[in-house]
Design a protein around this nucleic acid. Structure first.
Lengths: 132, 132
DNA sequence: GCCGGATTACGAAAGACTTCGTAACACGGT
DNA sequence: ACCGTGTTACGAAGTCTTTCGTAATCCGGC
């Protein structure tokens, strides 16, 4: 019963997607436990909350559900890359007037990227320009 | 009657912020007209909707209101840079596990950045590394 | 001083998001 | 076959966001 084609995941949904990207296909309990440990500081999310979100995400088409075993197993439908690309593209449009350079500039300022990261970014630029 | 210190602007709020960044201090009508022209394709936002959003944004502390003239004049409180930095930092945290390099990579892929933009980004990297 | 047009203020409706209580269901052990 | 535990299903509450109808207010012109 898929509802819509593509919208961006909400904050709660994204938190779950990150767990699924990291762990691969998982049950509700597995997701919930990782989230409880990860955000030990924040108030942790209840089991049925995670379940509900996963049900909604199934409905939206963000994840697939394998119901063959007692505990259903959820897995992402879109790769981490695709989702991140979509999110950054969306932000680019909504807040940066489409200027990639400007977004990169602000990203560098937001987290004082260290030398290692700067070098890595340079390498990305070379690769990107080379393989076009 | 400020309500909160810092949260990210919603989509509707961001659309208005972009107009204020571009035009500088503006009245409701000015903002509304720019938005109507800009999003000629999308259903345009009504006057009282823009007004309401600006009132809410005043409440949240995103904008200041000058009530000295008949038509109130709104202006941003936080610079475009600061806001964009906050947004990109937020996305970095929520979706990229804090990896700036990964975000840049996906940004490059999302919009096939042209040679011009790539060069500009390289220049940014040089400046950034030089002036630390 | 009054009227009309524009502006602001107020509140409500509709939808999305998050949370959780509770019921229904499934399964393993005894 | 029954019970207890764990899982899924359902629905509702509370908040936030966007939208807009309507009332109240202001001001310039007559």
């Amino acid at each position: 019963m898929a509802r819509q084609k593509l919208s961006r995941p909400t904050d709660g949904e994204l938190a779950i997607l990150r767990v699924l990207w990291e762990r691969g296909p998982s049950t509700v309990r597995e997701v919930q436990e990782v989230m409880s440990k990860r955000d030990a500081d924040r108030r942790d999310v209840g089991y049925t909350t995670v379940l509900k979100l996963l049900q909604i995400m199934t409905d939206k088409g963000f994840v697939d559900r394998d119901e063959s075993s007692r505990s259903h197993i959820y897995q992402v439908r879109q790769s981490e890359d695709e989702t991140q690309r979509q999110l950054v593209d969306d932000l680019l449009e909504r807040a940066f007037g489409g200027s990639t350079a400007r977004l990169v500039l602000q990203a560098l300022h937001a987290r004082k990227a260290g030398k290692g990261e700067l070098d890595e970014i340079r390498r990305l630029l070379d690769d990107f320009e080379g393989g076009r």
